[in-house]
Amino acid sequence: MSVPSSAIVAVVIPCYKVKRHIQSVVASVGPEVHTIYCVDDACPEGSGDFIEANVSDPRVRVLRHAVNQGVGGAVMTGYRQAISDGAAVAVKIDGDGQMDPTLLPQFIAPILRGEADYTKGNRFWDLRQIKQMPLLRRVGNLGLSFMSKASSGYWDLFDPTNGYTAISLPVASHLPMEQISRRYFFETDILFRLNTMRAVVVDIPMDALYGDEESGLKVGKILGEFAFKHARNTFKRIGYSYFLRDLSVASFELVAALALLLLALFFGGWHWWESAQNGVPTPLGTVMIATVAAVSGLQFLLAFVGYDIASVPRRPLTGVLVPRRQA
Rank of each mutant, 00 (worst) to 15 (best):
residue 193 R to Y: 04
residue 208 A to D: 01
residue 159 D to P: 01
residue 211 G to Y: 03
residue 188 T to V: 08
residue 184 Y to M: 10
residue 179 Q to D: 11
residue 191 L to F: 03
residue 153 G to N: 10
residue 187 E to V: 07
residue 180 I to Q: 04
residue 191 L to N: 09
residue 144 L to E: 14
residue 178 E to K: 02
residue 158 F to D: 11
residue 213 E to L: 11
residue 156 D to M: 09
residue 174 H to W: 05
residue 204 I to Q: 07
residue 191 L to Y: 02
residue 189 D to Q: 04
residue 183 R to W: 06
residue 212 D to H: 11
residue 179 Q to V: 00
residue 188 T to Y: 01
residue 170 P to D: 09
residue 167 I to P: 02
residue 150 A to K: 14
residue 195 N to Y: 04
residue 189 D to M: 08
residue 207 D to M: 11
residue 157 L to N: 03
residue 178 E to Q: 04
residue 156 D to I: 11
residue 177 M to E: 06
residue 158 F to N: 13
residue 201 V to R: 03
residue 147 M to A: 15
residue 181 S to Q: 09
residue 147 M to Q: 15
residue 203 D to M: 04
residue 168 S to A: 13
residue 155 W to I: 06
residue 204 I to V: 15
residue 154 Y to I: 13
residue 167 I to E: 05
residue 212 D to C: 10
residue 201 V to W: 02
residue 215 S to L: 05
residue 207 D to N: 15
residue 158 F to S: 13
residue 141 N to F: 07
residue 153 G to L: 09
residue 171 V to L: 03
residue 179 Q to W: 04
residue 167 I to Y: 01
residue 206 M to I: 14
residue 141 N to A: 15
residue 170 P to R: 07
residue 204 I to D: 06
residue 200 V to P: 05
residue 214 E to R: 15
residue 213 E to R: 14
residue 208 A to C: 06
residue 195 N to F: 04
residue 165 T to E: 12
residue 142 L to A: 15
residue 152 S to E: 02
residue 159 D to M: 02
residue 178 E to S: 04
residue 195 N to T: 04
residue 150 A to P: 03
residue 182 R to W: 00
residue 193 R to T: 07
residue 144 L to I: 11
residue 165 T to Y: 04
residue 201 V to M: 05
residue 154 Y to M: 08
residue 199 A to Q: 07
residue 175 L to K: 02
residue 160 P to D: 12
residue 152 S to F: 00
residue 163 G to Q: 06
residue 150 A to M: 15
residue 200 V to Y: 01
residue 162 N to F: 00
residue 172 A to S: 12
residue 215 S to K: 11
residue 207 D to R: 11
residue 179 Q to Y: 04
residue 161 T to M: 15
residue 171 V to P: 01
residue 151 S to K: 09
residue 204 I to G: 11
residue 181 S to C: 08
residue 154 Y to R: 05
residue 192 F to Y: 14
residue 145 S to W: 00
residue 171 V to R: 03
residue 181 S to N: 12
residue 155 W to N: 07
residue 170 P to K: 05
residue 160 P to G: 11
residue 171 V to S: 05
residue 199 A to W: 01
residue 187 E to N: 14
residue 190 I to K: 08
residue 194 L to E: 03
residue 161 T to V: 13
residue 168 S to P: 02
residue 215 S to A: 13
residue 186 F to V: 02
residue 149 K to Y: 00
residue 188 T to D: 06
residue 205 P to D: 11
residue 175 L to E: 09
residue 141 N to Q: 15
residue 210 Y to L: 13
residue 200 V to K: 03
residue 142 L to R: 11
residue 161 T to C: 13
residue 206 M to V: 13
residue 161 T to P: 08
